[in-house]
Nucleic acid binder design. Structure first.
Lengths: 198, 198
DNA sequence: CCGCTTAAGTTAACGGTGTTCACATAAGGG
DNA sequence: CCCTTATGTGAACACCGTTAACTTAAGCGG
């Protein structure tokens, strides 16, 4: 197996080897302690050691780079939730675990999480990242619906799913914005699916 | 009663009369169909008919203007919630009404709402707008706690309050980000305090 | 192996931004 | 009435996103 990307071709001079991957990687690194709007295209290029206009060979504009970063974030969130569920089982405990993973992901990656959920309102929800979006979010939705669909009707189950998502997302956002001073115990207490069943 | 502000002194030439108020007013107008980061200081000054540097007599920097706008938004949200509760009574129906008002405010003022809840993470939660913050948010929190504190203990009541806030806030944010296609009926269905009582 | 096409870099420039500085003007109190 | 102070102006600085024209490297057909 040959990886033709950044690994083997570190710096062969004029050509980089795999910019785009490097740009996304550096972008994620900068997002660790910054909001996305505070990251400059030129600054990012400088950090990679490349001219600013070089990025335009791989992204049509800054917005495209943002979308690429958001997509990577959604993939990682989906993975974190999948891991949590795999570890916690398929019952209600496992479902609560996915919720905790959701919130924990937001706290661990504040800049990235904010970026993921800041699709431009002018773009009428038809960006290319909808597919990935569903993958991450429908997992939570499906699990929630399956969890209670046997006890109540499917309509009430979907309502439960929506409530669960809104609760967990709202908690994550409020924690990120420092509206709530939240320790781990509080998070565990708030995220309790039993408190949502009708 | 004499209003010395923008009303009577519209344009007396070199001096504006009451910039700062005019800047905030124009800022709120621009926020009606724009995100805050897409509003330029110079553009705003241009819209008022004043030079960009004139704004620096009233705001130390752009961030201060943003905070002023956020504060005004919090005042308006508090008012909207107060009105809703006054109209809906003090029982559970009134409480649900404040939740609906919260979401409706977000939908009616997307740019402003996003601004209100985007305090810089670098600022360690000690901006001057904490007071107003409490005023708007503690209203929801207090009402929630009072609503159920007689039925359950005060600890469980506070947990209920936190869940209610997170649910409503998460719903608002998800609707704003177009992650949920929400009609009014759906909002009413999701916001139902009965589904949260332990 | 050579030459040509094309992908992927470069520098220079344009307009726009936030911010600062020196200066100009209006308002108001001694 | 003058002098202070608040409030405006315009020019300048450094930075930004984006584009254009140019240069270099890679790959492929003959």
């Amino acid at each position: 197996m040959i990886t033709v990307s950044t690994l083997d071709a570190a710096k062969r001079g004029y050509h980089h080897g795999d910019l785009r991957s490097a740009a996304i990687e550096e972008g994620l690194r900068l997002l660790e302690d910054r909001v996305v709007d505070d990251i400059g295209l030129r600054e990012l290029a400088r950090a990679i050691g490349v001219s600013a206009s070089a990025l335009y060979r791989h992204f049509p504009d800054k917005e495209a780079l943002r979308q690429a970063l958001a997509e990577e974030g959604l993939v990682r969130l989906a993975k974190a939730q999948g891991d949590a569920q795999a570890h916690g089982g398929s019952g209600m405990d496992g479902f609560n675990a996915t919720g905790r993973a959701y919130v924990q992901f937001a706290l661990d990656n504040p800049g990235l999480f904010r970026l993921m959920f800041s699709s431009l309102p002018t773009v009428d929800a038809l960006g290319g990242l909808e597919g990935k979006h569903d993958e991450a979010m429908q997992l939570l939705q499906r699990n929630a619906a399956e969890l209670v669909s046997c006890d109540v009707g499917p309509a009430a189950a979907q309502l439960f799913a929506l409530r669960a998502w809104a609760l967990v997302h709202g908690l994550a956002v409020l924690l990120l914005d420092k509206q709530i001073a939240g320790n781990a115990d509080l998070i565990d207490a708030v995220i309790d699916a039993k408190a949502l069943v009708p």
